[in-house]
């Protein structure tokens, strides 16, 4: 894949995104007031399970911890084999070989690796790109990169474009998700602008956060990013995916996100090819609510494995 390019005029356009924050808050409040019942709830809970990028990103991660994650992702609830597996597991590069070994070569579960100096991105570009290649060589099928927020906030948008384009090239056909760390960007307008920039530079998914700082994913931020995806699709026909990550812990939150996606982008985005949740504890709440829907009462916490 050839390197994407952009002009000064493109950068100027990205930087002039206009968002009215109060109106966004009102829109989100309205989405949150949707009431999901019965069949709708069942369907969306199962869909949400299939959209989880089950994540562990800790200094204390070990191959065994990652194996646990892979087992859980493949079969979220042993008693219900017809439940979908999660979309992917998401781990540090050093854990990719262990995850690949645990998943095998024919698993439907994707193997996402954070890379490019996650979570800060504060490494030389060459090292960050070699990290990407290393992860892919060892079996990663998806790369979650971080952008250089410092460069962005000092106005060097061209640099950020180039680092994404370079990572895109390093990824080849592997799915590229671009993490903005929106909690560090300050305004919805910057988030809208960098969403346009990342999509132009070749992102397959745009992703809110590393999960390492607060606030992580929020609905206003997600709405603004979905809106950029929509405009790009309406202009070019290319469908870019969205991944809110961090802070989504309950099934109720997840369903509110799905309504937001449905009302902004429609049915074509209600699939794990275009929408993911970066989460760890969310999965168990989804399972709990699914059992609650099936049996009428909440299950004992011990019925669902901790990880």
């Amino acid at each position: 894949m050839s390197l994407q390019r952009c002009t000064e005029a493109d950068l100027a356009a990205f930087r002039s995104a206009r968002i009215d924050e109060m109106s966004v808050a009102r829109r989100v409040a309205r989405v949150k007031s949707r009431s999901l019942k019965a069949d709708t709830k069942d369907r969306l809970l199962r869909l949400a399970v299939s959209m989880v990028d089950l994540t562990t990103l800790e200094g204390m991660d070990t191959p065994d911890r990652v194996r646990a994650l892979c087992h859980k992702a493949s079969r979220p609830l042993a008693e219900q084999p017809d439940l979908p597996s999660t979309a992917a597991v998401c781990v540090y590069p050093a854990m990719v070989p262990a995850a690949r070994e645990a998943l095998g070569t024919s698993s439907p579960v994707g193997l996402a690796s954070v890379a490019t100096g996650f979570p800060s991105g504060q490494l030389a570009l060459g090292q960050r790109l070699s990290e990407v290649r290393w992860a892919i060589d060892h079996g990663a099928t998806e790369i979650d990169m971080v952008i250089s927020r410092g460069r962005l906030l000092t106005g060097d948008w061209g640099w950020v474009f180039d680092e994404i384009a370079a990572t895109r090239e390093a990824c080849g056909p592997v799915v590229l998700k671009v993490i903005f760390e929106t909690g560090e960007l300050g305004s919805l307008e910057t988030i809208a602008g960098v969403s346009q920039l990342a999509i132009a530079a070749g992102a397959d998914f745009i992703k809110t956060s590393t999960g390492k700082i607060s606030p992580a994913a929020t609905m206003p931020v997600t709405f603004v990013m979905l809106d950029v995806i929509r405009e790009h699709y309406l202009k070019t026909g290319r469908m870019v995916g969205m991944k809110p990550a961090g802070g989504i812990r309950t099934a109720k939150q997840a369903l509110q996100y799905l309504v937001l996606v449905a009302e902004t982008l429609g049915a074509d985005w209600l699939t794990n090819e275009r929408f993911r949740f970066g989460a760890s504890s969310l999965l168990n709440d989804l399972l709990r609510q699914l059992i609650r829907r099936q049996e009428g009462t909440y299950p004992s916490p011990r019925r669902i494995s901790v990880d």
């Binding site: 949707r34 069949d39 699709y233 449905a262 009302e263 982008l265 049915a267 209600l270």
Partner: peptide
Amino acid sequence: PTLKIAGAIEFSP
């Protein structure tokens, strides 16, 4: 390109 918004989620009553 068109978006399939209407009926993207079938809402139960």
